[in-house]
Design a protein around this nucleic acid. Sequence first.
DNA 1: GATGAATGAGTGTTCATTCAT
DNA 2: GATGAATGAACACTCATTCAT
Lengths: 209, 209, 209, 209
Amino acid sequence: MPPATPEPAARPLRVREDPAVRRQAILEAAARLFATHGFADTTVRDIGDEVAIKSGSLYHYFASKDAILEAVLREFLADLGTATAAIVSAGTSPRRQVTDLVRHAFTLMGERPYWVLTYQNEFLRLAGQPGFEFVAGESARIEAAWVAALTASAEAGDFAVDVPVAVRYRLVRDATWTAVRWYRPGEELDAAALAERYVAVFYGNHAAG
Amino acid sequence: MPPATPEPAARPLRVREDPAVRRQAILEAAARLFATHGFADTTVRDIGDEVAIKSGSLYHYFASKDAILEAVLREFLADLGTATAAIVSAGTSPRRQVTDLVRHAFTLMGERPYWVLTYQNEFLRLAGQPGFEFVAGESARIEAAWVAALTASAEAGDFAVDVPVAVRYRLVRDATWTAVRWYRPGEELDAAALAERYVAVFYGNHAAG
Amino acid sequence: MPPATPEPAARPLRVREDPAVRRQAILEAAARLFATHGFADTTVRDIGDEVAIKSGSLYHYFASKDAILEAVLREFLADLGTATAAIVSAGTSPRRQVTDLVRHAFTLMGERPYWVLTYQNEFLRLAGQPGFEFVAGESARIEAAWVAALTASAEAGDFAVDVPVAVRYRLVRDATWTAVRWYRPGEELDAAALAERYVAVFYGNHAAG
Amino acid sequence: MPPATPEPAARPLRVREDPAVRRQAILEAAARLFATHGFADTTVRDIGDEVAIKSGSLYHYFASKDAILEAVLREFLADLGTATAAIVSAGTSPRRQVTDLVRHAFTLMGERPYWVLTYQNEFLRLAGQPGFEFVAGESARIEAAWVAALTASAEAGDFAVDVPVAVRYRLVRDATWTAVRWYRPGEELDAAALAERYVAVFYGNHAAG
DNA sequence: GATGAATGAGTGTTCATTCAT
DNA sequence: GATGAATGAACACTCATTCAT
């Protein structure tokens, strides 16, 4: 039943959240949309809808739609770079490092699949685009860590089959990271279990000891 | 045998006059643009420019931009399905079949990288989109062939490491097909050589005799 | 009385005018709007409304709103430059040339006031703007013609009062061209009569013989 | 005489603390921006930046962007009206009055060019706009003073050339006030010298006695 | 009095699609 | 078949204005 006296046109409920929280919410929403619809097919209105603000208000947080993508990629690559550096500088055995890299990848794909997908889907297009040079730079640093660990493991004689490291790196990287397209945690195998099996295949054997 | 009546000499030399030829040229151009710029970032004008006709004329060949994408994917999947079926019904050994599947994949990535990339890039977005149900259907048929070959090979004891076939299939598929992002023929290793090394790693050993 | 049977939703009446005619109509409408509301306050939708096409269709004729302004100014300055050159190279006396320049200005202000106003209103803002260098260039050429005629007339002793030519030029130019803000033909004095009186004041006397 | 009680020394040196001072600073900044970029192309952010406050705070001083323009024009026209009235009611000779009006105009253009330009640039557009009727009203009052002085001077036989006063007024007004587009004090001729030459040309002779 | 966050209406521009010629 | 002109719906982005803090 409607109220007897009509309510005055309800003023919009301005929640006045913490700006830093809202900024992060925008990035989360944007990453999800970029990953599922593609950057070009995602409109700033779509992003605004997801965080319940008008598209114009996004421009208080980011200078442009491109800047949102940039922030997503910067945060993603910073986190990935930090974790990668931690793994390869831990002083553990090469195979341990490779295993940790793969396991961390599966964990990350489980936790933040949209960020990983956004990175993968936009990587090629962004190569050489002004303002996005950091993508190639940071990617190269991470690639170097993987290649170093694989090289050390090969020199230690860990692999059942001998192939050039450039070939092995790509096989390992592609098999691992492409899993983001189908891997969802909570299924039969968790990140650690999957990583272990992947690594076993990569090496052609199970870890000694 | 040449026609009895000589053709008039003055006819202007218009290449690609055959509608079927032009239709195919449109698909080639579209696939290249879809792969390099993305479907959403490719305009029908771009496609028209590549084949030297105005965008409006594209609509004599295809009902819509979506229809061009559909035709690209239909042709790609039809060819891939045919080749896949031929390999797995050749009566060869399981490992031979797996090797042929991988080798064929590398060959195809070398010959038609843009078609492969278009398929990969749009696959997720197209899932469940009306008119594109054939993509999932055809993909499932091809997947079944790969899984069958891998299962047979596992049952034959070919693999050094034992993992569930669902896991192995995805690892093999992802490692193989993602190579389209970097593999270009004419480099150090050709398709056959690369395929051989990939298969060796997948199996954890080199093919017997 | 409405017809008994409802008419089918009337398809838009596409007049299919001569494109060159429509292009010119766009320029006329744009000049009028730029002059009366200012360039910044004129929307491309306003322009489209005046020529009965949608704003998007304007982009078949011009690459941008700026390009419309550029075309207006180019046409205006080309016409003005041609007329100016014809006057000062006619071999007439200096005072005759000055009189003709002023008379032509009044005629032009009567015939195309909006073009003159657009030029005047946007001149300062456009100085140094990329793509609009021709405005300053062409303006300088026209100014040189006026200064030459005034200088020759001063050397001939035509002026009752002696002032530096730079001062006189600006006085004459400003007094003459600013008339576009109020002069409309069909009032008491026509262009020729007004020009004659202006010139008489500029010279401090009436023309001899 | 300095105040008896010394001011506290530690007070932070905040210039422009007085609201009236800040209000005036806003008008100065706004006039400069309106004159150089145009009213439509000036944002309230631009104005705020110039006086180091956020755009929202401008609304403590003015009700709207239009109200800022209105205040600029009101102050400008009030000052100009006062000065004009003082000149024409001084009891001096008609030619003296005309000379003083022109000299005051040049002085004003030197001191407050942006106010003059804002007035000129927005005058046409504002005609008949609600809230801006005072512009036409005040302008008419000033025009009447110029016309009266010119009429009296003509009746005194000061002019070398005889033209209708309506024509002469416009010529004199336009030549004089349009100088704001190029006149900057500190060049060869100062306001008084320029005014003298302009008046000499307007009269067709130099002042007697 | 000052601010930052938010809005809503609008801006120039793009583009897949249509269709008379 | 081919085209150029036209459209309409969308797009990223801007900005004067409001208001709780």
